[in-house]
Structure formats: structure tokens, C-alpha cells
Design a protein around this nucleic acid. Structure first.
Length: 326
DNA sequence: GCCGGTCT
DNA sequence: AGACCGGCA
């Protein structure tokens, strides 16, 4: 891991939502959903998002509460869902699973001790994007007429590709990997309070006098989701090494180091599996009645939890519709 | 991912 | 100064 190292290399500026009106953003669905899922679980009583059969669909509350943020700023999201997971990620997936299992054990203890605050906190850390969560999210997005794209592999790679082609204006994710996939402009903090930040790919390369390939090589030296990285190499050392030696292999040679599958990791970022088989309409006409029934009746979510969210969606989408006729 | 403390 | 690490989301 250690992706946050990329932040110190990235050129990031504040941008206001006002400047984004009318644009389209390819959102990393996994990343976005996970954020709303964990905060919903943390702040909402379990029974409000659990069916009689015991299925938890906190995602439905999260999605309804998260979408208005886009519509109220006249920003159209296109949700990009992950496809196949590469075996290169096995180690990372394993680490995350072990971490989750540790939290699950602590959660048991907290439950027995009757510590409600700690239970809520740990519950939010043990969430996973289960098949049910992904499927019900997709169904809800369909009812709300929000565009969805299926990536053949990494969603980030697909989002970056769409942005490079100019089919969308921005990629949207918290993940700095977007830079490695060559997303020209990435919006971060779309899920937080306040204005987002804008990460600029070309400006990042220019700032460090690196090519795209060299930036990817620097990241591989520091460590990515797909490899450990070389101990002792952080952002500064990685960049100066690339400038001195030119590419990853020359750097590794010079230091007497070796990285497994370096060539595959490079390709994964520079030439990811992507699809041209997508088509979306940015004019959104949600069926709010059907969406509300889906959430509150079919999945038995407490109507109180989604009432305001649906209202906000209704108001902001109607508003946008009116704007078009002006 | 973010932050703050600590090691080299 | 730069990298690392552990706690908390």
C-alpha cells in the first residue's frame, strides 16, 4: 500500500462547485459507495436498514443521501463499476480481509460489553460491498435514471479512459491511482462537506519533469495496491531516482533491487483493460415514486431516513429541468 | 486515506 | 529532510 505518498507529488487545487455546473463526472462507484455505506452504518440504527429477513441495505440510505450533492450543483455523475479483479491484487485483498477480521473480533467484544458507541464505530469498519449491496445500488440508480458504466477491470482505469477520450469532464474518486491511470482531471472529496479538490495530471507531470511512464515507475517504487514498494523510497527519492536513471528497471538495477511483476503493474496503469461499450444520457429523468417504493417497501428501509434525500433529488432535478428551457 | 509522532 | 508506522476513519 502507501498510495497516499502520491498526494505529495500530485498538483491539487481547490475548486468550487459553482465552477463545475453542467459538467459530467465518471465516478468510481466502489469508492463512492463505500464512503456512504460506512457513514450510514455508523450513524444509523441497524434496524432502520435491515429487512425482516436480516439483510442489511444501508447502501440504499447512503445513495439517497449522497446523490443530491451532484444534482444540486448541476453535476451529472456516471457511476463506473469494477469488473474482474486482477490476481496482482491478491495480497492487498488478503490484507484488507485480515484487517476486517480483526475488527470483527473486536466488534464481538464490544457487543458483549454493551458498548454502543464502540459497536457503531467498529460496525462501520467491517462493512463490505456484498453482491446484495452492489445489486440494490444498481437497481436504485436505474430507477433514478442515473447512468452506469461497467468496467472490464478496474473502475478507475475505465473512468480515466472516458475522461481522456473527452466523454466525461472529470474522473471522481478519492484514490490517487487516478493519476497513474492518466485521468486528466480528477475531482476529490465529492463525498465530504464543502468544496472538492481538483487533481491535475499534466500539471503533475510538468511539476516533476516526468513522463506518464516515469510517474507510474515512481509509484511502483513507492508501492501501489499491486506491489510492496522498496523500503526507504518515498516520493522524493522516487522522483530523483527516475530523473537520474530514466526508468524503473534502471533504478532497480542501480540499487540491486527487484520487484515482482513490475512489467504487468506498469501495463495495468498505462494500458488498462477498458471498454468502449458504454452509452449514457446525461439528461436525467428519475422515477422518484418507484425509487422510494423500492427502498422503503421492497427493502423495508425506514422512510424517515430517505425522505429528505428524495425530496432534495426531486427539487434539484426539477430545477435542472427548468434551467434547460431558459 | 489522513494525521501526528518517531526513527534514520 | 525524508520515510515509516500506528491509530483512527
Amino acid at each position: 500500500m502507501g498510495n497516499a505518498d502520491l498526494r505529495s507529488l500530485a498538483v491539487i487545487a481547490d475548486i468550487s462547485f459553482d465552477e463545475l455546473g453542467g459538467s459530467v463526472v465518471a465516478v468510481d462507484a466502489h469508492n463512492w459507495l463505500y464512503r456512504y455505506l460506512t457513514t450510514t452504518v455508523k450513524f444509523t440504527t441497524e434496524h432502520k436498514y435491515t429487512t425482516d429477513e436480516g439483510t442489511e441495505v444501508a447502501n440504499l440510505i447512503g445513495v439517497v443521501q449522497g446523490l443530491p450533492k451532484f444534482f444540486e450543483h448541476d453535476l451529472t455523475p456516471v457511476f463506473v463499476f469494477d469488473g474482474a479483479v486482477t490476481d496482482l491484487k491478491d495480497d492487498e485483498v488478503q490484507k484488507r480481509r485480515e484487517q476486517r477480521e480483526r475488527y470483527e473480533a473486536k466488534l464481538e467484544d464490544a457487543r458483549e460489553a454493551g458498548d454502543a458507541t464502540r459497536v457503531a464505530k467498529l460496525e462501520s469498519r467491517t462493512q463490505r460491498l456484498t453482491p446484495t449491496i452492489v445489486e440494490t445500488t444498481r437497481e436504485l440508480l436505474a430507477l433514478l435514471d442515473v447512468p452506469v458504466v461497467d468496467a472490464p477491470a478496474e473502475g478507475e482505469g475505465q473512468a480515466a479512459y472516458m475522461a481522456r477520450k473527452g466523454d466525461v469532464d472529470y474522473a471522481g474518486t478519492e484514490d490517487y491511482d487516478a493519476l497513474l491511470f492518466g485521468a486528466p482531471l480528477t475531482l476529490r472529496q465529492l463525498t465530504s462537506k464543502g468544496d472538492p479538490e481538483l487533481m491535475d495530471f499534466e500539471a503533475t507531470l510538468a511539476k516533476h519533469d516526468l513522463t506518464w511512464e516515469q510517474l507510474v515507475d515512481a509509484a511502483i517504487l513507492m508501492g501501489t495496491d499491486f506491489n510492496e514498494g522498496i523500503s526507504g523510497i518515498g516520493p522524493k527519492t522516487a522522483v530523483s531516482a527516475l530523473q537520474e536513471y530514466g526508468d524503473l528497471y534502471a533504478v532497480l538495477d542501480a540499487r540491486g533491487e527487484y520487484i515482482d511483476h513490475a512489467d504487468r503493474i506498469r501495463q495495468l496503469f498505462l494500458d488498462p483493460a477498458v471498454s468502449d461499450d458504454y452509452d449514457f444520457d446525461t439528461e436525467i429523468t428519475p422515477d422518484i415514486g418507484a425509487a422510494r417504493r423500492y427502498v422503503t417497501e421492497e427493502w423495508e428501509v425506514d422512510p424517515e431516513e430517505v425522505g429528505r434525500g428524495f425530496e432534495r433529488i426531486e427539487e434539484s432535478v426539477v430545477q435542472t429541468g427548468l434551467d434547460r428551457w431558459n
